[in-house]
C-alpha cells in the first residue's frame, strides 16, 4: 500500500495534468456534440430536402465509421486538404462530431415523440412554426431526451480517451507514459481507470440526474 502511495505522489503532477486535459476535452466535446446534435436533429425534420440530406449524410458518416478512424482522418488526412487543426482542437472536435451524430437521433426521436396534440394546440393559438418549436415542442422534447443524454455524456467522457492516440496529453496519454517509464502497469492503468470511473459515476451521472429532476419539476411532474 505504501508503495502505491509513493507511486501516486511520484506521478501526481502527470496524473493531475492529464486529468485536467481530459476534463477540458470532455467539456468541449460535449458542447460540440450538443450543438451538432440539435442542429442536425432538427434539420432531419426540416421540410427542405437539401438540408435534410446534409444532416442525414453527416449522421450516417459519423455513426457508420469508428471514432478512431475519424480521429486519424481528421488529424492526419485533413491537413493534406489544407485544413490543419492543432491536436487539442482536432481531438474535441472529432469526439464532439462523432457523438453529435448519435445525439442527433436522440433529438429527432424526442421531438417526434412529443404528442401531436401539442403541435395542434400551438397551431390553434396561431403560433408561428419557429415559436411552436421553441416554446412548446423543444422544452418537452428536452425532458424526454435527458435520460439517454446522461448515458451519452459518459460515452463522450470515455471517447475522449482516444485523443491520447494523436498525442493530446490527457489522462490516458499520461497513464501510458507512466507505464512506459515505470513498467508498473497495474498502478498506471489502474489509477487512470479509477479516475475515469469516479468522474463518470460520481460527477457526470449525478449531474445529469439532477438535471433530469430539475426538468421534471419544470413540467410539474415532481
Amino acid at each position: 500500500m505504501s508503495s502505491y502511495l509513493e507511486f501516486l505522489s511520484r506521478h501526481a503532477d502527470q496524473l493531475v495534468n492529464g486529468t485536467a486535459i481530459t476534463l477540458a476535452q470532455f467539456v468541449l466535446s460535449a458542447l460540440v456534440a450538443i450543438t451538432l446534435a440539435v442542429i442536425a436533429g432538427l434539420l432531419t425534420l426540416a421540410p427542405s430536402r437539401p438540408l435534410k440530406a446534409v444532416a442525414t449524410v453527416y449522421i450516417e458518416i459519423f455513426r457508420g465509421t469508428s471514432l478512431l478512424v475519424q480521429l486519424y482522418w481528421i488529424y492526419f488526412v485533413l491537413p493534406l486538404m489544407g485544413l490543419e487543426l492543432p491536436k487539442f482542437v482536432a481531438g474535441f472536435v472529432t469526439v464532439g462530431a462523432c457523438f453529435g451524430a448519435y445525439g442527433a437521433e436522440l433529438v429527432r426521436g424526442a421531438v417526434l415523440s412529443v404528442p401531436k396534440g401539442q403541435w395542434e394546440a400551438a397551431l390553434a393559438l396561431n403560433m408561428s412554426p419557429a415559436k411552436r418549436m421553441r416554446r412548446i415542442i423543444l422544452p418537452q422534447a428536452l425532458a424526454i431526451m435527458l435520460p439517454p443524454w446522461g448515458n451519452m455524456m459518459v460515452e463522450i467522457l470515455k471517447g475522449t480517451a482516444l485523443v491520447a492516440l494523436i498525442s493530446v496529453a490527457d489522462l490516458m496519454f499520461m497513464s501510458r507514459q507512466i507505464n512506459g517509464t515505470t513498467y508498473q502497469s497495474a498502478q498506471a492503468f489502474g489509477t487512470a481507470l479509477i479516475i475515469y470511473y469516479v468522474f463518470a459515476r460520481f460527477l457526470v451521472t449525478p449531474l445529469m440526474r439532477w438535471l433530469e429532476r430539475a426538468m421534471a419539476r419544470r413540467l410539474g411532474r415532481a
Binding site: 459518459v154 489502474g190 459515476r201
Partner: peptide, 23 residues
C-alpha cells in the same frame, strides 16, 4: 458492470494486455 461501462475501452485494452504479464 457500472465500472466497466463507465471507463474507456482503450484503457481496458491496455490494462489487460500489460497487467497480465505482471501477474
Amino acid at each position: 458492470v457500472e465500472f466497466i461501462r463507465s471507463t474507456p475501452l482503450l484503457l481496458q485494452v491496455f490494462f489487460i494486455y500489460y497487467v497480465g504479464p505482471q501477474i
